[in-house]
Design a protein around this nucleic acid. Structure first.
Lengths: 232, 232
DNA sequence: GCATGACAAATCGTATACGGTCTCAGATAC
DNA sequence: GTATCTGAGACCGTATACGATTTGTCATGC
């Protein structure tokens, strides 16, 4: 036996199923409401339903899927209310993570963050030419945020930040395509945040700025929603 | 079949196993390092290993148990490092929750909090008589904290707070019995925090105070540990 | 006496099987 | 035409079974 020469056995079927399903949710292949049928997934993975079930329960714990007894699992969407809770929580934990990371940020980290923001700015220049790639912009944005939070020494906090990002990634459309105004503001706020860090500002001040940066996005989205559907 | 007349089917075996094991961990019956053997638990519960396994994986997601492939699950302890990460994270999320709750706190909530703190103070008076009940003191402390955080409208945040508390409850000995000094300081800080809230202080100020209150406990424990075992 | 290897027991990981529950379509009564 | 009932199909929940992996023990060789 042993199909894979060495590393074949290292990962369990649960892990395989978990990675596959999660990737499909995060990448948008499975959109909110999509039904995750144990039997079908098991057949596709060449396994039984037991590992698939366990993987789905794990995704449930991360709020990526919804599970109803005797009915089944569906991909969870982010309704406006959930979006708000998630963003508020992310503002808190990401702010704290960045605040704790600031003392450990190296010059290289800061430079990388600036580079990413410049790439975002460059992408933004395409906007006038009608060749703006929202997907790429969002990806750069996330990488920048990750760069600033990564040195945080508290793994629990980083895990909460990761979970928040993952939930947001289930949104089919990027926030930046919904509220185009936020693109320019975002880049400008990144600059301000990086300047603040470079100036050696106090951790609490940086934390507050990072939190405000995310809260501002949330406020923009809420305002946009209110404008779209005034009869809420 | 159907041993229970009506409500027997409402809960799944997974849920039963989860509740049972969690209760035993939190109550201290299963101490850190205790091995959770699937077969034994299944036999005790009158079920198969499959639901027990799922329950244990759920507890793993909450960091209450540790799972190693092909080896098994053990109850997780809070080593000093883990304790620190947990307390730091709790300081952040609990602070934020209290900060968000402050605008929604009713006079009755505040009064209840004051009452609980007075009960703590009363318990403290027993300390000199050698009749101090650490358990009760800790319980009052947690109820007070819960009272202040509960009105926070963000369920995600409250969930994180709850998880933090649950992890801390796995400590066999209360912090207050380890570092007796913190008892008096804690009560005093509660008073200050309640005064701050009653004075209509800004949410950010309250948040910071709540965070500092918990951070102070962490610092006290760390200092105590350093004094106990200087050769770390 | 200590290291090394093989064997056995314990336990995990997953496939298969089957009973229970839900959903939905079609038929029947009004 | 609408509402209710009935039945079949799909799917979930869990028991059982068995192969795979780990761990500890004991014998063997140095």
């Amino acid at each position: 036996m042993t199909p894979g020469p060495v590393a074949g056995v290292a990962t369990s079927k649960v892990e395989v199923a978990y990675q596959l399903i999660r990737e499909r949710i995060v990448s948008g292949r499975y959109t909110p409401g999509y039904r995750l049928v144990l039997g079908s997934l098991a057949k596709e993975l060449g396994s039984s339903t037991v590992p698939v079930r366990e993987a789905i329960r794990r995704l449930e714990a991360e709020h990526l899927v919804e599970f109803e007894r005797n009915v089944g699992a569906t991909v969870r969407g982010l309704d406006p209310v959930e979006y708000r809770w998630t963003m508020e929580t992310l503002a808190v934990v990401e702010g704290a993570a960045v605040g704790q990371a600031v003392a450990l940020l190296t010059a290289a980290d800061l430079q990388e963050a600036r580079r990413l923001n410049e790439l975002m700015r460059a992408e933004l220049a395409e906007l006038d030419r009608g060749d703006f790639d929202t997907q790429r912009f969002s990806q750069l944005n996330q990488r920048l945020h990750r760069t600033l939070a990564a040195p945080c020494p508290n793994p629990h906090l980083l895990d909460l930040v990761d979970r928040g990002w993952r939930r947001l990634s289930t949104l089919r459309t990027s926030v930046f395509s919904m509220v185009p105004d936020r693109t320019h503001q975002s880049v400008a706020e990144h600059d301000a945040l990086l300047d603040l860090i470079a100036s050696g500002a106090d951790a609490l001040v940086v934390e507050h700025a990072a939190r405000e940066h995310r809260s501002a996005t949330l406020r923009a989205v809420l305002a946009h929603e209110a404008a779209q559907a005034p009869t809420a």
